[in-house]
Computed example of a mutant assay.
Amino acid sequence: MIDFNSKDFGKSFKTLRLDRGYSINDLADNILSPSVLRKFEEGLVDPSFTKVLMLLDRMHLGADEFIKFSLPNYFPEYKAFLVEVGESYNNNDVKTMKRIYQRESDLFRENSEFFYLIAASTVAALIKNLEANFVVEKNIIDNLSDYLMKVEIWGDFQILIFGNCSMIIPSKTIYLISKELFHKTKKLRSINDNLHNTIAALENGIEITSDRREYELAKELLDLLSDFNIPSDELLLRFKFSFFKNLFFKKQAEAIKLNNQLIETLRLMNSNQLASAYDEYMSTFYQNKLS
């Protein structure tokens, strides 16, 4: 059972209460006293698990979602899974990854547990990175998309899932989820520090839709990203934003010139492999547009 005796829980609860427009008096009515609720939000008291569940229910918020928002690193099982599948991915061991995918998708089919859904989705997305023609079960894609479309509070955990699994999500769904992620994260980001992961997830969506030659959707995602002020110390995120902005909104000759300057900056930073990857990406992009 989760111990709610934590300042993180109280702080998160207050964030969600204010975001949903509840006053302390209205929310506490007939559950506990307003003073106790206020002290909980300040991290001074530990209400019972039952009382917290009643308060969450009044806000139409599940305990699982509240915990994910309050403790974004609460899921060690998923982290352990990422280590397992990451080793196979780094070794280009597609055969092992397919066995892992089959194991997790079978487990999800048997008991519909959330963990098996995100595990199967994550390894499927990694396989698609290595083997473009890999076919993912429609049941996995539909359930993953349905879950992400219904997310109310975007914490680091949900953003991580979206970023890790976007490769198997339909492009239009990526756009719709990105809009929800953008608006809800922007509203709460002063308290829930997930700006980096949000920007990275949006940039990932731009790259995926561009690779699929769905350029109008990629442009719309880029427009969303334009409303974020990318921190000056996030050099790679700023590089990717400028790179794609040039591709989609500059004439080809000017875009190539500007992006070559960006790529040269990577080489000056001794990131030659990354520079070559973006150089090749730009060449392929214009070849695809002409074909």
Rank of each mutant, 00 (worst) to 15 (best):
M1L: 03
I2W: 00
N5W: 07
K7S: 13
K11W: 02
S12V: 06
L16M: 01
R17K: 12
D19P: 07
D19S: 14
S23K: 06
I24Q: 15
N25H: 05
A28G: 13
A28N: 06
D29R: 10
L32I: 11
S33L: 07
S35E: 11
V36D: 14
V36T: 08
D46E: 08
P47D: 12
S48G: 10
F49S: 10
T50R: 14
V52K: 09
L53R: 11
D57V: 01
M59S: 03
M59V: 06
L61H: 10
L61K: 01
A63C: 00
A63F: 02
A63E: 04
E65N: 03
F66H: 14
S70K: 02
Y78M: 12
Y78I: 06
A80C: 10
F81K: 02
F81M: 00
V83A: 04
E87R: 11
D93M: 12
V94Y: 13
T96K: 05
T96I: 04
M97K: 00
R99G: 10
R99Q: 09
I100H: 01
E104Y: 09
S112E: 08
S112H: 10
F114K: 14
F115H: 08
F115P: 03
Y116H: 15
I118M: 12
A120T: 05
T122G: 07
V123S: 15
A124K: 09
L126A: 06
L126K: 12
I127P: 00
K128F: 10
L130P: 11
E131R: 09
A132F: 06
F134T: 04
V136N: 01
N143P: 02
N143Q: 10
L144W: 08
L144F: 01
S145A: 05
V151G: 08
I153W: 00
I159S: 05
I161S: 13
G163Q: 08
I169Q: 00
I169W: 03
K172A: 08
T173N: 11
I177H: 05
L181Q: 13
F182V: 02
F182H: 09
T185D: 00
I191A: 05
N194I: 06
A201T: 11
A201K: 00
E207A: 15
T209F: 11
R212T: 11
E214C: 13
K219C: 06
K219W: 02
D223H: 10
L225K: 00
S226I: 12
N229W: 07
I230A: 09
D233I: 11
E234Q: 14
L237G: 06
S242M: 03
K245Q: 13
N246T: 05
N246A: 01
F249Y: 09
Q252D: 09
A255K: 00
A255M: 01
I256A: 06
K257P: 02
K257V: 04
L258K: 15
N260T: 10
N260G: 02
N260E: 05
Q261Y: 03
Q261L: 15
Q261H: 05
Q261S: 07
L262D: 09
L262N: 07
I263S: 03
R267L: 09
N272M: 15
L274Q: 06
S276T: 13
S276L: 05
Y278I: 12
Y278L: 15
D279K: 15
D279A: 12
E280A: 11
Y281C: 11
T284F: 14
N288A: 02
S291V: 05
